[in-house]
Design a protein around this nucleic acid. Structure first.
Lengths: 210, 210
DNA sequence: GACACCTTACTTACTAGTTGGTAAGGTGTC
DNA sequence: GACACCTTACCAACTAGTAAGTAAGGTGTC
C-alpha cells in the first residue's frame, strides 16, 4: 500500500494539476487513474462522482489561499512590505505553463456543476476581500499611491497577476515577471526592492500562487 | 438554403462562442450542430477535423484584432486618446460571462493540437507588440506616467484586462469596470475621461474585445 | 433545349474508441 | 466479521470521424 502521503491526497493533487492544465471537462477519470497508477474505479471509491472530486480540489485551493494569507501576514515589515510580498510571491517559480488556480476556476466556470460554480464564486470573493484589505492597510501607511479606490487597486492586482500567468503560457515566464514588476511600480511610491537577488524571498510550498 | 450569412460563417461564430465559454475540448461537434441546426456530419463537410475548425476560429480572432486596430487608429485625438480608447473598448458591453478571446486561447492552450498552439502564440505576440507600440507613442506624448518600461506597461494592460474579464465571471460585470478604470488611472497622468456618460464611445461589432 | 458532368451542401446510418459510473468480488487490517 | 481499499468486468451514453447516398445548381457541349 505504501501510502506515504495517502492515496486520496495524491488523487486530489493530480486532479488539481489537471484542472489547471486542461480544465475540468477535459480530463477523465482514466487520465487521473493513469497518473496515480491505480484503476479507474479506485478513483470512484474515493470520489464517487467527478463533482465530489471537483469540490475537493476547490477546497484544496481554499487551503492554498490560507497558506498565502499566513505567509503574507508573517512577513517582516509594515503593510507595504506585506502587499509587496503578496504581489511578488508568484515570481521565480518554475511553474512552466501553470496558470493560477483562481483563473482556472473562473475560465472553466461554465463547465462546472452548480455546486462548483458556487464554490468558485465564494473563493473569488474571499480572495477579493482579503486583497482589498491588504491594499487598504498599505494605502493608509502612505506607501501606496492613492489613485482610485482600494477596491479598484485590488481588482488591478488580482486581474493582472492572473492574466500574467496566462500570457506566460504563450510568451514564456518572462512575461509574468514583466507584469509582476509592473503591478508593483504602478502601485508603490518607491521603486520595487531589488528583484533579481536570487531565491531568498519567502517561497510557498509548490505550484503557482494566485 | 436561405444562406443569408453563409452556413460556414455561422458555424465559425458559434464555435468561437463555445470555445470562449467552455473551451475547445469541452464542446462537441454535436453541440455545435445543435446550435447551428444542422446535422453533425454537415459540420465535418465544412471542417473535416476539429483542428481545422479551431484554426479557423483563431483566424477569426485575427480578424477581430484587425478590427480593434482599425477602431483605435481611427480614434480622434493624440496617442493618449488612442491608448485610452483601447483600454476602455471592452467596457459597457453586456458580454455576460464572456471572457476575452486571447485569454481563452491561452488557458485552453494545453488542449490544443500543435498547429493551434502555434497560432495562439503568433496571435499573442502580435497583440503584445501592437499594444507595446501604442504605449510607446503615448509615453512619448507625455500623457502617460513613465514608471517601468513600455513593455512592462503593455504587459500590465493586457494581463489586467484579460484577468478582469475572468474575474467578472465570478464577481459580475462591475468587477471588469473596476479593472478597466484602474488600468487607466495607473497609467495616465490626468484622470480618466468621464466614463459613465452612457453608450457614446466607439463600440465594436460584437462580443468582448481583448 | 437537352444531356453529361461536375461541385456544394447536406442527410441517415455507421464505426471504433472513450466517457462517468456501477456491480461483484478479492485481500488486507483491526 | 466489518471495514478500507483495491481489482476485473461491465454498462449506457457519448466522442470524432466515415460511408454512402441524395438533392440542387452550375457549366459545358452538341
Amino acid at each position: 500500500m505504501e501510502a506515504v502521503l495517502g492515496r486520496k491526497t495524491l488523487i486530489v493533487q493530480h486532479a488539481e494539476k489537471l484542472l489547471r492544465r486542461v480544465g475540468f471537462a477535459a480530463f477523465s477519470y482514466q487520465d487521473l487513474a493513469d497518473l496515480v497508477e491505480i484503476s479507474k474505479p479506485a478513483i470512484h471509491h474515493h470520489f464517487a462522482t467527478k463533482e465530489d472530486l471537483g469540490l475537493r480540489v476547490i477546497a484544496y485551493y481554499e487551503e492554498h489561499l490560507d497558506a498565502i494569507v499566513n505567509m503574507v501576514s508573517g512577513q517582516p515589515g509594515g503593510p507595504g512590505a506585506r502587499l509587496r510580498a503578496f504581489i511578488s510571491a508568484g515570481e521565480e517559480q518554475d511553474s512552466s505553463g501553470e496558470i493560477c488556480p483562481l483563473g482556472a476556476l473562473q475560465v472553466h466556470f461554465e463547465t462546472f456543476p452548480p455546486s462548483m460554480k458556487q464554490a468558485t464564486i465564494d473563493l473569488t470573493e474571499r480572495m477579493r476581500s482579503w486583497v482589498t484589505g491588504l491594499v487598504t492597510e498599505a494605502r493608509s501607511s502612505g506607501e501606496v499611491k492613492d489613485w482610485g479606490t482600494a477596491q479598484e487597486q485590488a481588482a488591478l492586482i488580482m486581474s493582472a497577476l492572473q492574466g500574467g500567468r496566462q500570457q506566460a503560457r504563450a510568451l514564456g515566464p518572462a512575461a509574468f515577471d514583466d507584469v509582476s514588476r509592473s503591478v508593483e511600480r504602478a502601485l508603490f511610491r518607491r521603486a520595487p526592492s531589488n528583484r533579481d537577488s536570487g531565491p531568498d524571498g519567502a517561497q510557498l510550498d509548490g505550484s503557482s500562487t494566485y
